[in-house]
């Protein structure tokens, strides 16, 4: 398997292998998964983002629109050990400072890797 390229596009294989490697190295790790999309969404259902306790991440759930917010929430999930369900999109503009400029909506499930 090829190593993730710095600044490059991470493949699904690299993202999941990285989640395993980070956890085995003793880091706190959370895995975020797109579980639902409505309307035009940048990344399909099943897309993954892996995050460690310090906010390092690999992968993508929205092509860059809401990754920052997912990373912040994931750090909470790692600290608390409690999974979270997040929703982003136009309908949630009042609840969330970030949204999807494409006008779609996505649900993201974030679970700790124990």
């Amino acid at each position: 398997m090829s190593e993730p390229v710095a600044g490059g596009l991470a493949t699904e294989t690299e993202i999941l292998a990285t989640a395993e490697a980070w956890r085995k190295a003793g880091r706190g790790v959370a895995l975020a998964t797109v579980t639902e999309t409505w309307g035009s969404a940048p990344r399909p259902v099943g897309s993954h983002l892996v995050i460690d306790g310090e906010g390092n991440f690999l992968g993508s759930v929205s092509g860059g629109c809401v990754e920052g917010a997912v990373v912040t929430e994931a750090i909470d999930v790692i600290a608390s050990g409690v999974p979270k369900r997040l929703e982003f999109g136009v309908a949630d503009e009042t609840a969330w400072r970030v949204g999807l400029s494409c006008g779609g909506r996505i649900a993201v499930h974030v679970v700790p890797v124990n």
């Binding site: 398997m1 999941l16 395993e20």
Partner: peptide, 24 residues
């Protein structure tokens, strides 16, 4: 999610075997 489950998932992927991770 257990690390053991994630490892097993990666093993299936590496062996070119279809597998589903089912989460409640």
């Amino acid at each position: 999610m257990d690390l053991a489950l994630l490892s097993a998932l990666n093993r299936h992927r590496a062996a070119r075997e279809a597998v589903a991770l089912v989460t409640d």
